[in-house]
Simulated scan of single mutants.
Amino acid sequence: MPTISIETTERSDVLDMTEDVSRAIPDDADGIATVFARHTTAGVTVNEAESRLLEDLANALDGLVPDAGWAHDEIDNNADGHVRAMLVGPSVTVPVSDGQPDLGTWQSILFVECDGPRTRTIQVETVDG
């Protein structure tokens, strides 16, 4: 099963990984691809990859979920990252045509880091339909 490695440089970060996902899909695939973050403090979503919007998303998650006052912080001080990742979700499923994600005009597959900087592994599973 193809995997993608992503390096993040910030505690909260949003990165466009559409090209990486495209390379992980077999050239002859037609069906669906599920893109899954194998982490509890990171997520995947589909939206526009405009740089200010990516920054807005990271800032919105930071604003929605404060980084202090959580019981889990007694263990490893990253409860906010877990809660932010739960809001985003760990995966997306997208249609695939001719070996490429069949996305809308402004849609991109985005990786959302909630507890970086880290090296992350993303799994891409393609099912022909």
Rank of each mutant, 00 (worst) to 15 (best):
P2C: 04
T3S: 12
T3A: 07
T3P: 00
S5Y: 12
S5N: 11
D13R: 08
V14Q: 08
V14R: 10
D16V: 04
M17W: 07
T18C: 06
T18G: 09
T18I: 09
T18D: 12
D20S: 13
D20Y: 08
V21D: 00
R23C: 03
R23G: 00
P26L: 01
P26Q: 00
P26K: 00
D28F: 03
D28M: 04
G31H: 03
F36K: 07
F36C: 05
R38G: 00
R38S: 09
H39F: 01
H39T: 05
T40V: 07
T41P: 04
A42N: 00
V44K: 02
T45D: 04
V46Y: 11
V46D: 12
N47F: 11
N47I: 04
A49P: 15
E50G: 10
R52P: 00
R52I: 05
R52H: 12
E55L: 07
N59L: 14
N59I: 03
A60N: 09
L61K: 00
G63E: 13
L64A: 13
L64F: 12
L64S: 08
L64W: 09
V65M: 10
P66E: 10
D67T: 06
A68H: 14
A68L: 03
G69Y: 04
G69Q: 05
W70R: 06
D73Q: 02
D76W: 14
N77C: 04
A79P: 06
D80R: 13
H82K: 11
H82V: 07
V83D: 01
V83S: 03
M86H: 07
V88R: 01
P90T: 08
T93I: 11
V94P: 07
V94M: 05
P95L: 04
V96A: 08
G99S: 10
Q100C: 02
D102Y: 14
G104Q: 15
W106A: 14
Q107P: 03
Q107C: 06
S108P: 03
I109G: 01
L110V: 06
F111A: 02
V112C: 15
V112E: 01
D115W: 01
G116M: 02
G116A: 06
T119M: 13
T121S: 13
T121K: 13
Q123A: 14
E125M: 14
T126H: 02
T126R: 02
T126A: 04
V127R: 15
V127C: 05
G129D: 14
